[in-house]
Design a protein around this nucleic acid. Structure first.
Length: 482
RNA sequence: GGCGAAGUGGCCGAGUGGUCAGGCAGAGGUCUGCAAAACCUUCUACAGCGGUUCGAGUCCGCUCUUCGCCUCCA
């Protein structure tokens, strides 16, 4: 069953065939680190995390590079405005590099909570200035870039096919959108900066053959992608809002420099919206993940994100999150029941579910359908467990193996053990388990003596403490509420 | 204005021609000391108007509406 990926460049689903059999090179645009991550980052990086995980499940060796943009780019037009990181540094009365480091760590903390695997290489833009300068030199030599007054610009007219990703190929149209009246030494308004001379007071700056300055925004991805993954990479991912100008700029400067195709499959994920409006830092409607995690289990957020397709907009609301929470709890409960059941004789065929799950994932990573397969499975398993014959040990193991691969390894919404965090030691878990066993025994005794006031009190008080009791045919079980 | 995407039931959200998405919420039932969970049954859809077709959320056209990009942005 081959994998199909929707390629933003061709606007069709294409059969995935990496450049080298068995090996996938993948680059995803990372965050600009001048603030805490928000729900939009969660959607993006959870989506690409599942892409990486499924490729690995499918047997590929994946080299995953995701940059950290720690060069401050401008808040405004390409020629005006203050650098974002410098601005944040001024607001926090801090050094720009400390700002970048602080928010980089914050980003990974949040991603860890969401079970997003770290990239194999996470290159920082500031650590690759020489590579970026070398790429500019290459472009100047080949006549695709020019230097004026210490600034270097990419000549858009020199690259045929500029704008092919976004569909913006009419250069005259570019000009109409550009504000008049700003002073610029560009030859053409559509040309974009590769190197900018630093103004007085600009804090993040480096030496270059042209001026003391800083690199253009699009440049770092091209330079670092080439350095770690080669001139042609298999997959490049990013947010849709970056198709133009960022990704079209990357294509132009990369392909102009190498003469090789830059990316084989472009993947773009859609936005998170609130009441239909895009969530964005600059729009001041973004939902900070650290705040969100105070009330909502990060796994619920991950599940919520994966319940919609990565190319669809995802509309945030508290009711939607709550629905996801209840839904995820249902899947967890089935998994728990399965683990706790006493071996029976029933035979359960897992193959059709495996097949449907793989089919969904191979169809451009259709996680909502993949999750619906898990719900169908949940229903079938619960029904089987309700029957006296239950599941044989062999069948139970088959189902658990599938749940581990699909739910834990691929979607990563059902962790192997979600009762306690990883920080809790095995010893304390064991002790807690012992205490719970005693409480359940006391409650069972009370019920046997028809002392329902006591048994209900135990149940109610435990629920207040965040532990739910369920009476099953095989006795009571308990679980921690998320 | 230019480029691109989308409008599905109370809510979220799949589905590119021919029984069914799925989740949440609602209703009825089974089970239970009661609850919870689970299971069974069940009610609300494809923005509008034309067209193609034996047959259309699904293809085509028009209209209306929404969103993204054209400034930094996942």
């Amino acid at each position: 069953m081959p994998l199909f990926i929707y390629n933003s460049l061709s606007r069709t689903k294409e059969k995935f065939e990496p450049l080298q059999p068995g090996f996938v090179s993948m680059y995803v645009c990372g965050p600009t680190v001048y603030g805490h991550a928000h729900l939009g980052h969660a959607k993006s990086y959870v989506s690409f995390d599942v892409v990486v995980r499924w490729l690995r499940q499918s047997g590929y060796r994946v080299k995953y590079v995701q940059n950290i943009t720690d060069v401050g780019h401008l808040t405004d037009d390409a020629d005006e405005g203050e650098d974002k990181i410098t601005k944040q540094a001024r607001l926090e009365q801090n050094d720009p590099m400390e700002i970048a480091q602080f928010y980089t760590r914050s980003f990974y903390e949040d991603m860890d909570q969401l079970e997003v695997l770290r990239p194999n290489i996470a290159p920082a833009a500031t650590a690759h200035i020489p590579e970026q300068i070398a790429l500019i030199e290459r472009l100047i030599k080949s006549g695709h870039a020019y230097e004026i007054n210490g600034n270097v610009y990419f000549s858009v007219a020199s690259f045929e096919g500029y704008g092919k990703l976004s569909g913006r190929t009419d250069l005259d149209a570019h000009q109409s959108g550009i504000r008049v009246g700003i002073r610029s030494d560009k030859r053409e308004p559509a040309d974009f900066a590769l190197w900018k001379k630093a103004d007085d007071g600009h804090l993040m700056k480096w030496n270059s053959p042209w001026s003391i300055g800083y690199p253009g925004w699009h440049l770092e991805c091209s330079a670092m992608s080439m350095k770690y993954l080669g001139e042609t990479i298999d997959i490049h991912g990013g947010g849709m809002e970056n198709k133009f100008p960022h990704h079209d700029g990357e294509i132009a400067q990369s392909e102009a420099a190498t003469g090789q195709p830059y990316v084989r499959y472009w993947m773009h994920n859609n936005m998170v919206t609130i009441d239909g409006i895009k969530m964005g830092k600059s729009l001041k409607n973004s939902i900070n993940l650290k705040e969100l995690f105070k009330e909502t289990d990060p796994m619920v957020i991950r599940f919520f994100v994966l319940q919609s397709h990565y190319r669809s907009q995802l509309d945030y609301s508290e009711t939607a999150i709550k629905a996801s929470k209840t839904g995820l709890e249902k899947l967890r409960e089935t998994k728990r029941r399965l683990q706790e059941q006493k071996p029976g004789t029933g035979v359960f065929a897992i193959a059709p579910f495996q097949h449907r799950f793989a089919e969904a994932m191979d169809d451009d990573f259709n996680t909502p359908v993949a999750i619906s397969v898990l719900f169908d499975l949940s229903k079938a398993i619960n029904a089987a467990l309700d029957r006296p014959e239950a599941l044989s040990e062999a069948s139970r193991q088959d189902v658990e193996a599938f749940l581990d691969r699909a739910g834990s390894q691929t979607l990563c919404i059902l962790k192997p053990d979600n009762l306690f965090s990883d920080r809790d030691s095995k010893e304390s878990v064991k002790k807690f388990d012992g205490v719970m066993t005693i409480l359940l025994e006391l409650r069972a005794e009370a019920r046997k003596n028809k002392d329902f006031a006591l048994s209900d009190k135990i149940r109610d008080r435990l629920l207040e403490a965040g532990i739910a009791i369920k009476d099953t045919r095989d006795g009571a079980s308990w679980s921690v509420q998320s």
